[in-house]
Write a protein that binds this DNA or RNA. Sequence first.
DNA 1: CCAATTGTTATTTA
DNA 2: ATAAATAACAATTG
Length: 277
Amino acid sequence: MPELAEVEFFRKRWSAGHSAKVLTVRLHEGKKVFRGCDTGQIKRGLTGARLVGSETAAKQMLFRFSGSNWLGIHLGMSGELRVEPPDYRATTHDHFILVQKLRQLVFNDPRMFGGVLFHHGKAPPAWWTKIAPAILSPAFTVDAVEAFLRRRARAPIKAVLLMQERFPGVGNWMADEILWRAAIHPKRLAGSLSPAEVRALHRECRKVCRLALDTIAGKGRYLPANLNAHIPRSWLFWHRWEDGGLCPRTKKPLHREEVGGRTTCWSPARQKLIRNM
DNA sequence: CCAATTGTTATTTA
DNA sequence: ATAAATAACAATTG
């Protein structure tokens, strides 16, 4: 499920445990989510450490602990973070639990496409620092987008929007939402977009990120009760999986088809396939 | 049984 | 060599 704003939603949940100490680390080594990391080192590093802060970048979360310990979590396709009471008993697909005095921080992921990363050291780890600059950062310019589309000129724009090295945090529904707002057909080849369309794409990328973060993860300290509680019906989001769904703007039927390897939804009345060199 | 799923990566193809 | 397409990963649901 999780893309940019959902990832921030889950990070914010775990921030309930900020400044509290980890009493026990519960994990089963050998679980796929720990592929490529030393679970013994995680236990040694986090037991007794204090959770001092957290951040998100793209679809990755970073939790900082006292003693130069860094924990990364990626939610994959089906992962989520929860906060449970101190007497909570782990259930199926709970792969990783940080037990604190007043709560348990739980990472649950049925499909196990997600994963855990760990680093002990003074400086932040490479797997964190190498993540592309955020869409909402000053580095995400029209020129940068234009140059990237030129390099991926023969790929459908939908596939290009899913590339994390330029559109960090964008996933399947956000890509469809962005193209729908920018009125660009998902099968348009990246290199065929006019300068005006590139500007529209850039603008809608930023707008969808901003709106998604505010409505899904909540502004400031506020955290919505669930992920979708405040998403307006006017977004494509609610209509993209409905059979017989209608475009919220044109009221005409939506279309679903696989583009760039993912099921893609668009509004044919609004997003036209033209000038596909 | 078949097909589907909001992600990423390795492999194959062009 | 580069980039695009495809397969694979795993679990569950309809």
